[in-house]
């Protein structure tokens, strides 16, 4: 057995732990084709609470329990064109009441193809760049997500196949990890829309016999007064998942931000003949 192979075998348990530690995510959202249109600004407050978990995770170099963890993210997304948006996120974590600390910064570019319904499947792409605080983690990550969506009368079905690749730190040498998030929503009514979301993580691409994670979220979208509140209750489908997760996404549209509209709208005009 060569030295390299021996080192690899010795590293395997560490790799498995590493994947487990990073596989449990803090934020849950199935992205839809809809996104802020040109000139529109949208704010989203993400909150995830883990009331019950047997899992550990790494927080600023410390191994902590996910039990009692709460994670928050504030996002602003602006429509550059009707097809593309740019968003920034600030993520923070509070493990078991230890105090809220900013953990990551994230920049996201979204691009959608065509107009809605122009094709059988409405398709868009999401490119995320995650930069953690140095003390939190030294792994910067790229995330590529595809949004595939189709409406069947009042039902909307959405799939988000996703690839994540660490581009710095120790994990940079691994293949991308794969995820498939899916959602089905009953959209008959505006104010109340029940749905089901399924989050699946399959680990590193091409590596077999590694733990998979599957969580099922019954969700409820409540809309009114300009707000959209997406609530979900995460239930584990494998023993490697948190026992219970509660998520809430509060979305508020800040309207059109177009500097040119601040001038020359209504005015008095005089003509001398």
């Amino acid at each position: 057995m060569s030295g390299c192979m021996r080192k690899f075998l010795l590293l395997l348990p560490a790799l498995a732990f590493s994947l487990a530690a990073h596989a449990q995510r803090s934020f849950y959202r199935v992205y839809q084709y809809e996104q802020p249109l040109k000139g529109w600004l949208e704010a989203t407050l993400w909150t995830t609470v883990v009331p019950s978990s047997r899992l550990d995770y790494e927080h600023f170099g410390e191994g902590l329990s996910r039990n009692g963890l709460s994670a928050h993210s504030l996002e602003f997304e602006y429509g550059l064109t009707d097809q593309s948006t740019f968003g920034v996120y600030l993520n923070a974590e509070n493990p078991g009441g230890a105090g809220l600390q900013v953990s990551q910064f994230q920049a996201v570019y979204r691009y959608r193809l065509a107009r809605r319904y122009e094709h059988f499947i409405n398709t868009s792409f999401y490119l995320g760049y995650i930069v953690p605080r140095q003390r939190y983690d030294n792994t910067q990550e790229l995330e590529v997500r595809t949004v595939l969506e189709h409406d069947f009368n009042d039902l909307r079905v959405v799939l988000n196949p996703t690839l994540s690749k660490a581009i710095s730190g120790e994990e940079a040498r691994f293949w991308p990890t794969t995820r498939l998030d899916a959602g089905v929503y009953y959209r008959r009514f505006y104010h109340l829309q029940p749905g089901v979301e399924l989050y699946n993580e399959f680990g590193e691409l091409g590596v077999f016999r590694q733990p998979h994670y599957h969580q099922l979220f019954p969700t409820l979208d409540l809309r009114g007064f300009g707000f959209d509140l997406n609530l979900g209750l995460g239930l584990p489908l494998t023993s490697s998942d948190d026992r219970l997760v509660v998520k809430a996404l509060l979305v508020y549209s800040l309207g059109v931000v177009r500097p040119e509209l601040l001038f020359h709208r209504g005015q008095r005009s005089t003509a001398n003949q």
Partner: peptide, 8 residues
């Protein structure tokens, strides 16, 4: 917005 125009 409403508009006012004056022709002299």
């Amino acid at each position: 917005h409403p508009v006012v125009v004056e022709f002299d």
